[in-house]
Amino acid sequence: MSEPTKFSLVKPTIDTPFHIDFEWWKQHDSDWRVFLFNLLCDYHQNVYKDQDENVVIDFIDPKTAEVKSVDGLLHTLLNHCAKMTDFTSHDSSLVSTVFRVFLSNNNQPLSPNDLSKIINRPANTILITLSGPTVYKGIRPFDKK
């Protein structure tokens, strides 16, 4: 298991990139899988409802038929459900919306400025929310290291 990243001492700005730090989230929120499950589309909620929440699946490469063992919930969420057109358009809180944006873009780092253009909320509001004392759903500044 990789060591969770520590807080940076540098104060984030509206240009500081953020992302979902899954490792940090796993360490600090025992309900993170429940939350992920709720984000699955109806079809996949049905598929995974009887599975262990830590289920590992055999992902089959669509071109080569190579098999890789991957985290079932996360893989399905990132590669299928988060790609659905209405995934980011749910009427929800700022934090949930930002979280969905990161899931839909394969967790590519985005700054409050970038996010502001996507979710149409002020960059400063996003910055204040994400850089406050509470870390929501593992969303933290992206450490380039």
Binding site: V47, D58, I60, A65, K68, G72
Partner: peptide
């Protein structure tokens, strides 16, 4: 894989020693 009804996974070792799995 809940997406597929049933299949097997074969573990393969290539001539150069590289290991990988296929469906």
């Amino acid at each position: 894989n809940p997406e597929f009804e049933s299949f097997n996974v074969i573990d393969i070792t290539f001539e150069n020693g590289e290991k990988t799995s296929f469906a």
